[in-house]
Write a protein that binds this DNA or RNA. Structure first.
Lengths: 137, 137
DNA sequence: TATTGTTATACTCTATAACTATA
DNA sequence: TATAGTTATAGAGTATAACAATA
């Protein structure tokens, strides 16, 4: 049986390949230069529809301070806007602008392309199984 | 079927959880403060026995310039030493010092603990399957 | 010419703590 | 008192290009 720590290697390497592959395509679709994390955050907001900064930070396993700064930079680029919640004035609800949505489409396309290439050694069933296991974690 | 880009989320999140979990334990085992990447590099050298900077960079999907600086800092901490190859004077062969090997034992232990906890939702067979798929990529 | 390793620079990401405002 | 968000700072990781030494 493999030592669990070896899994950390493989996951790290896979993540780096995804990041590097997407970065290589970035000039084509990311004129705003949102960066890899910025891209992931936009994707997460798109999936959620509307979400608070704290919820976003938790969901992405990031620090809320980091998330605040990132959101500010994305807001400055007009990719999202925020609205204070009616129910709780402490909460900022985030939502993509049309410009942000357009960027998300491009990002999804680029990431999917990169991942499709990386995942070629796996069958469709394997991919499903991999995704399902990661979701369970 | 899930969009491939969703896999990027899950992998990113998993990697962050491993990093954060290990970071939380770092004070216990990492007095030299080698950092997460430094730890992974030490593990990789331990596995290889002897390896060049370039080979290490390729294997870990990192830039060789970055690897050079990291190796210098690990060398300054007496965790590894280098020797110029007899066959090719351009190549630096890296090897852990006893101090480096001791640290690797501690790191493996900490990472395995963190991963064991994260992986609890998966059966032994699932873990094997996950590892095997990641290796195939 | 190509490859290994180095230096330098600018940028992105992360960890931490202290702070405000609302609840 | 607890939570959402902010600010500030220091440190770690990344991308890029230009360079010297060796092959």
């Amino acid at each position: 049986m493999s030592d669990p720590y070896e899994l950390a290697y493989e996951i790290d390497r896979l993540m780096r390949r995804i990041a590097a592959g997407t970065h290589a395509k970035a000039p084509e679709f990311d004129p705003e230069r949102v960066g890899p994390l910025g891209g992931m955050v936009l994707l997460a907001i798109a999936d959620a529809g509307t979400i608070s900064i704290q919820a976003l930070a938790t969901q992405m396993s990031r620090d809320k301070a980091q998330m605040t700064r990132l959101i500010q930079s994305l807001e400055a680029k007009s990719l999202l806007h925020r609205e204070i919640s009616d129910e709780d004035a402490r909460i900022n609800l985030l939502e993509l602008t049309p410009k942000g949505e357009a960027l998300v489409v491009a990002i999804k396309h680029a990431v999917s392309e990169v991942l499709d290439e990386i995942l070629t050694p796996l069958t469709r069933a394997d991919r499903e199984s991999l995704f399902e296991m990661l979701q369970r974690l």
